[in-house]
Design a binder for these strands. Structure first.
Length: 721
RNA sequence: GCGCUCUUAGCUCAGUUGGUUAGAGCGUUCGCCUCACACGCGAAAGGUCAUAGGUUCGAAUCCUAUAGAGCGCACCA
C-alpha cells in the first residue's frame, strides 16, 4: 500500500498537483482524448460553454456553484465516452468593469474619466481586466474545472469582435437595428443609458401634490414630480370622464414657475380616472408613458427641461438647479401662489441604475435599438416570436420548468432593446459617418470617416457566446460538431439578461437554438439567508474555502440538496462536513488497500458478497439516471450516503471478522468485492469530487485507465465486474 | 395590477412518476481514543409534512380556498 495513506488526506497539497497532471495530459481537450484513444472518434459530442465570469475581480461562491454543477455534467459525459467540450472564457462586462476602474481611479487619484481621456482610461481598464483575467483563470483551475484551455475566449478579443460586427451588420441590413430618438433610461451617475433590465426599483417615501397650473386653470392635476411640470405640453384625461369631457381639445397658455408652457387637453384611455384628480399633466420628454400618450395625440416631444447631469434647463428661478432642489422651489412657488390644493404622503417606486445606484432620469436621446416586433426577413416572424418558439415547442427545455412561465411573461412585456451605451469600454458601435453617408459593420478605408462614439451593451456580445466561442463567423469544425450546445447552466437572475438574448441572437444569426437545455441554479446565500455582498462583508471566498477544506469539499457542499432554481444557504460548517467525508473516503481506501494486498478481483463471490455487488449495481443505475435527468443534488447525496453508511459503516465492519478469520474462500471473496466496490465508488464519485478520487485511483491495483478522469463510466448493462 | 415559488425534526433542506413504520446534514443528550478514520464509532431524543376542505383503496406528494414568507415583471401620473 502507498505510504500516502498513512496520513490524513491533505487536499491543499494534493489538488493543485492533480490539476497540473490533468492539464499536462491534455485530456481536457476532446481532440486529445480521441488522439490518445480515451474517446472514440465517432462518439457523439457533448458541449457546454462556460458562462464567462466578468473581469471585474475575483470569483465568488455563485461562480463556484456554477463550476461545480457544470463540471459534474462534463466529467460524467466524458467518462461516458462522449466527445466532451467545455469552453472557457471571460466577459469584458463593459459597464461593470469600467465603473469598477473609474471608482478606483477616483479614489486613488481623484480623477474622472474625462480627466484621463478615452485612450488613457481604456489602457487602465485593459490592465485591470488582464489582471482580473489571470486571477480568475487561476481560480477556475483551483475549483477543478476541466475546461479546454486551448479554446479559451474573451468577449472582447479579435474573433469575438469579428462576430459582433458581422451580427450587427446582418441585423442592420435586415432592418432590425435602427437608430432612433426615444425615451431612454438615463443614469446621471454613470453618464450612460441603460436597458430596462438594468433598472432596480426602490420603494421610497414621496409626496403626491395636487395643484393647478394657474389660478383660473380649470383642471387640477396630481404629481410626485412637480419640477417636471415646467416641461408639460398637455393634460390627458379618460375619454369617459364626465368631469373633463368639455375641456378635451382646448388649449391653454400659462406661465408656470417663470416658464411659459402651452397645454393641450387630450383624451386617452391610458389614464386612470380614479387616481389623483383623474387628469395627468403630460411631460413627454421625461416620462415614457407621457411620451407614448403624446405620440398618440401628436403633441410635441421637444420640450426638454432636464439635462444629462440631472439639472434644470429652463429660464427663471429653476435654471441650473438640481432636480431635488427644483422640486422644493416649485412646491414653494405653488404655496406662495396659492395653487397647491393637497399634499399627501405616498410610497413611490424609484428607478435606480443597478450598477451605480443613480436615480434614473428618463430622457429623449438618439440611440441604437433592436426592434423586437418587426418581422425578420425570410423567417416570417418577429424576434420576440423567435425567442418564444423554441421554448414553447420544447426544443429548449428550462430546468426547473416553472421558469418557462416566467420567461414567457417577460417576453410578452418586452420592448425594443436599447443597445448603445455612452461608456468607453466595450465594442465600439461598428458604424462610421461621413457627412450624410453611413457605413455599417466594416471600417471604411478612406479618410474622413468618424466612428460612432458609443459602445454596445455588453449583452450584445455575450448573446453570441455559444457560437462566437466556436469560431463563428468562420464555418469551423467546432461549430459543426459542438453547436447547438447541450447545456447552458447559469443563475436564474440572468435568465432575461443573457439566456433570452442568446436565444434571440442565435435564432437570428444561425436560425437555430443555442442550447438544448437550460439549467438554472439559485443564489448562494450566507448561513442567515442573506445575499453575499461586499458591503455586508458576509462573503465566503471559494478559494479560501478550497485552501482550508479542499475544492472537493466545497463542490459537494454546493451540490448536495441544492435543487435547481432554489436559493441555498452555505456555511463553513456544511463545507467542513464534506471535508470530513473526504477524509472518510481516504480511510475507506486505506482500509481496503491494506486488506486486499495481493488479492485477485477474479475470485468467486460468496452469495452474500454477490448480493452486495448487485446492490452497488442498482445504485449505479440510480445515480446514472439522476445525473442524466439533472438531479445531481440527489445523485451526490446518494453516493455520499452509500460510501459512509453502507460501505464504511456496514460492509467494512462486517469485513473485519472475515479478514481475521480462517475461511480462505470468504476472505478472497470479500477482498475481491471490496476492490470492486472501491473502484466503483471512485468512478461514481469522480464527477463530484474529482481530486481525491483521482488521487486514490492512482494507487489502485485495479485501475484500467491512466487517469480516472477518462476511465469508463460503469454502464448498468456491463455489470459490476 | 399580472405572474411564479415556498411553508416537512431546534436550524438548513431533500423527498425524482401519489404506495409499506416521512429522510439527510448540522445541532442536542448519553457512552466510547474499539488495531481504516476522534476529520471518528455506538446509541437516543425530536415531526398532527402551514390551516380547512376535496379527489383517491391510499396524499407531504394531485385539486380548491385561506393565512404567512419570498421572488419576477409592469407601474399610478
Amino acid at each position: 500500500m502507498d505510504e500516502k495513506f498513512l496520513k490524513p488526506y491533505d487536499p491543499a497539497a494534493t489538488e493543485s498537483r492533480i490539476y497540473k497532471e490533468w492539464e499536462k495530459s491534455g485530456l481536457f481537450n476532446p481532440d486529445e482524448c480521441v488522439k490518445q484513444g480515451a474517446t472514440e472518434a465517432t462518439a457523439p459530442a457533448y458541449s457546454i460553454v462556460l458562462p464567462p465570469p466578468n473581469v471585474t475581480g475575483r470569483l465568488h461562491m455563485g461562480h463556484a456553484l456554477m463550476l461545480a454543477i457544470e463540471d459534474v455534467f462534463i466529467r460524467f459525459k466524458r467518462m461516458r465516452g462522449f466527445r466532451t467540450l467545455w469552453v472557457p472564457g471571460t466577459d469584458h462586462a463593459a459597464i461593470a468593469t469600467q465603473s469598477v476602474v473609474e471608482k478606483q481611479i477616483k479614489k486613488e487619484e481623484d480623477k474622472s474619466r474625462h480627466d484621463l481621456g478615452r485612450e488613457e482610461l481604456l489602457k487602465r481598464i485593459e490592465t485591470f481586466a488582464a489582471e482580473s483575467h489571470d486571477t480568475i483563470v487561476g481560480q477556475l483551475k483551483t475549483m477543478g474545472a476541466s475546461l479546454d484551455w486551448s479554446r479559451e475566449a474573451f468577449t472582447l478579443d479579435e474573433t469575438r469582435t469579428r462576430a459582433v460586427r458581422a451580427v450587427f451588420k446582418q441585423m442592420y441590413d435586415a432592418g432590425l437595428i435602427y437608430r432612433g430618438l426615444r425615451i431612454v433610461n438615463w443614469d446621471p451617475k454613470g453618464q450612460t443609458t441603460i436597458s430596462d433590465d438594468e433598472i432596480v426599483y426602490e420603494e421610497r417615501a414621496g409626496k403626491l401634490y395636487t395643484f393647478r397650473y394657474a389660478k383660473d386653470f380649470p383642471i387640477p392635476i396630481a404629481t410626485t414630480r412637480p419640477e417636471t411640470k415646467v416641461g408639460d405640453v398637455g393634460i390627458a384625461v379618460h375619454p369617459d370622464d364626465v368631469r373633463y369631457q368639455s375641456f378635451v381639445g382646448k388649449e391653454y397658455d400659462v406661465v408656470f414657475c417663470d416658464v411659459p408652457i402651452h397645454i393641450t387637453v387630450v383624451a386617452d384611455t391610458a389614464v386612470d380616472p380614479a387616481f389623483g384628480t383623474g387628469a395627468v399633466g403630460l411631460t413627454p420628454a421625461h416620462s415614457q408613458t407621457d411620451w407614448d400618450i403624446a405620440d398618440r395625440h401628436e403633441l410635441s416631444h421637444e420640450v426638454i427641461v432636464i439635462n444629462e447631469i440631472a439639472k434644470m434647463t429652463v429660464p427663471g428661478r429653476l435654471n441650473g438647479k438640481k432636480v431635488a432642489e427644483a422640486r422644493e422651489l416649485v412646491v414653494q412657488w405653488l404655496k406662495d401662489e396659492g395653487l397647491l390644493e393637497k399634499e399627501e404622503d405616498t410610497v413611490q417606486n424609484i428607478a435606480t441604475a443597478e450598477r451605480t445606484g443613480g436615480v434614473v432620469e428618463p430622457l429623449p436621446k438618439l440611440q441604437w435599438w433592436v426592434d423586437v416586433n418587426k418581422e425578420v426577413p425570410g423567417r416570417g416572424k418577429t424576434l420576440k416570436e423567435l425567442m418564444l418558439e423554441p421554448v414553447r415547442s420544447g426544443a429548449i427545455k428550462i430546468i426547473p420548468e416553472h421558469f418557462e412561465k416566467t420567461y414567457f411573461h417577460w417576453i410578452e412585456n418586452l420592448r425594443d432593446w436599447c443597445i448603445s451605451r455612452q461608456i468607453w469600454y466595450g465594442h465600439r458601435i461598428p458604424v462610421w459617418y461621413r457627412d450624410e453617408e453611413v457605413q455599417i459593420g466594416i471600417e471604411p478605408k478612406e479618410s474622413g470617416w468618424v466612428q460612432d462614439e458609443d459602445t454596445l451593451d455588453t449583452w450584445f456580445s455575450s448573446g453570441l457566446w455559444t457560437f462566437s466561442t466556436l469560431g463563428w463567423p468562420e464555418q469551423t469544425d467546432d461549430l459543426t460538431t459542438y453547436h447547438p450546445t447541450d447545456l447552458l447552466e447559469t443563475g436564474y437572475e440572468i435568465l432575461f439578461f443573457w439566456v433570452a438574448r442568446m436565444i434571440l441572437m442565435t435564432e437570428f444569426t444561425l436560425g437555430t437554438i443555442p442550447f438544448k437545455t437550460v439549467y438554472l441554479h439559485g443564489t448562494v446565500r450566507d448561513a442567515k439567508g442573506r445575499k453575499m455582498s461586499k458591503s455586508l462583508g458576509n462573503g465566503i471566498d471559494p478559494i479560501d474555502i478550497a485552501a482550508r477544506f479542499g475544492a472537493d469539499a466545497a463542490r459537494m457542499a454546493l451540490i448536495v440538496g441544492n435543487t435547481p432554481g432554489t436559493d441555498m444557504r452555505i456555511s463553513e460548517e456544511k463545507i467542513k462536513g464534506y471535508k470530513h467525508f473526504a477524509n472518510k473516503l481516504w480511510n475507506v481506501a486505506r482500509f481496503i488497500l491494506e486488506n486486499t494486498q495481493g488479492a485477485s478481483i477474479e475470485a468467486s463471490l460468496t452469495p452474500k458478497d454477490a448480493q452486495l455487488a448487485a446492490d452497488v449495481e442498482a445504485l449505479t443505475k440510480e445515480i446514472t439516471d439522476d445525473i442524466e435527468n439533472y438531479r445531481v443534488y440527489l445523485a451526490a447525496e446518494k453516493i455520499y450516503h452509500y460510501v459512509w453508511h453502507e460501505l464504511a459503516d456496514k460492509i467494512l465492519e462486517e469485513s473485519k471478522p472475515i479478514f481475521a478469520g480462517t475461511d480462505g474462500g470468504a476472505t478472497q471473496s470479500r477482498a475481491a468485492l471490496l476492490l470492486l466496490l472501491l473502484t466503483r465508488i471512485l468512478k461514481l464519485l469522480h464527477p463530484f469530487m474529482p481530486f481525491i478520487t483521482e488521487e486514490i485511483w492512482q494507487s489502485m491495483p485495479t485501475k484500467d485507465s491512466a487517469f480516472l478522469m477518462v476511465a469508463r463510466w460503469p454502464e448498468s448493462a456491463a455489470g459490476v465486474r
